[in-house]
């Protein structure tokens, strides 16, 4: 008996969020199939492939034991130059600029300095830019508010607004200056939905909201991430829940580069082999798992991972 394809189709679809200025803008989401089931896309609606973002931190990355990563940014003295390099990587759809240095517990870079850096970085980037903060609620609120004004008209995606600061960030970034906002929850599906409701009630249009539902490196509680994303996508498509139809952005690099497999040197753990290949695998495996669970965009750090994941998406999307 020959194989008969039975497309799984839904009446509902995931919202499309576009960020970046004018012709260089990128759109995430917009699909109507289960994750990676591009073959189920309706003939009149071509599959919407997930997008790949490249993470660049204002502080740069420690590159000890990571010669490939170091080579990618070798000689790039400024943040703007590093952003340019990241944007030129094969497979990059956007750049995710992360102000780790803003953290009051770390470098504590003043807001004005971050704003100046961000402006230079955006001028340097041929690709759309998403901006992430330092995870300190107070500082991120001040930073995003200032950036939203300074980057007016640049259509930036801010990652992210949380339960504690969605009002300020939603109002400043989306309502006042027309930017896009990610709503961040930490693997809590009810809160993910509630944040979308609250942002919508604030007046932020649905198509200006993305979801960052949290993440975990593979092997570090990833099953909770997977089940959360599965449930979000099922509610969005099967139950046609409009408050969960926002596209999902996952900051994979933040998780994948924080676990011992991506940090411990070959000298410390010789039986694990060389560090860089190990770290690349960790990031690639985590990213692929996120895509299979429903991420519409993943943010990655290593140039090799960016290439691998972009190739995976392209191969499946044909």
């Amino acid at each position: 008996m020959s194989f008969v394809s039975k497309p799984r189709s839904f009446k509902a679809s995931i919202g499309a969020l576009t960020f970046g200025p004018g012709p260089s803008a990128v759109t995430i989401g917009g699909g109507g199939t289960l994750p990676l089931h591009f073959f189920d896309a309706k003939p009149d609606a071509p599959p919407r492939l997930p997008k790949v973002g490249v993470e660049v931190a204002d502080t740069g990355f420690a590159a000890e034991g990571l010669p490939l990563l170091a080579a990618c940014y070798d000689g790039a003295a400024t943040l703007a130059e590093r952003v340019r390099r990241a944007a030129s990587l094969d497979g990059a759809d956007f750049v995710c600029l992360r102000f780790e240095g803003a953290d009051p517990g770390g470098v504590d870079r003043p807001v004005e300095e971050c704003v100046a850096l961000a402006k230079e970085a955006l001028d340097a980037s041929p690709l759309p830019v998403a901006i992430a903060g330092c995870k300190n609620v107070e500082k991120d609120t001040a930073l995003f508010t200032a950036l939203a004004e300074a980057l007016q008209g640049r259509n930036v995606l801010f990652l992210s607004a949380r339960e504690e600061d969605y009002k300020q960030i939603g109002a400043a970034a989306a309502l006042a200056y027309g930017h896009k906002v990610g709503a961040e929850s930490a693997v809590d599906i009810n809160l993910a939905k509630q944040l979308n409701v609250l942002m919508t009630q604030l007046g932020v249009p649905k198509e200006s909201i993305a979801m960052n539902v949290g993440g975990a490196a593979a092997g570090y509680g990833f099953e909770y991430v997977a089940s959360t994303m599965d449930r979000v996508r099922a509610a969005a498509l099967e139950q046609e829940d409009a408050m969960l139809q926002m596209p999902i952005v996952t900051l994979v690099s933040q998780e994948a580069w924080a676990v011992k497999e991506s940090i411990a040197s070959a000298e410390d753990v010789p039986e694990w082999g060389e560090l860089e290949q190990r770290a690349i695998q960790m990031e690639a495996v985590t990213a692929a798992a996120c895509l299979a669970s429903g991420s519409d965009a993943v943010v990655l750090r290593h140039p090799v991972t960016v290439g691998k994941i972009a190739a995976l998406i392209k191969a499946l999307g044909v």
């Binding site: 599906i189 009810n190 809160l191 939905k193 509630q194 409701v197 609250l198 009630q201 449930r231 509610a235 139950q239 829940d241 408050m243 969960l244």
Partner: peptide
Amino acid sequence: NNYLYADSYLEF
């Protein structure tokens, strides 16, 4: 379990 709970579920 027909509809995902959120604190505002009664409002919409």
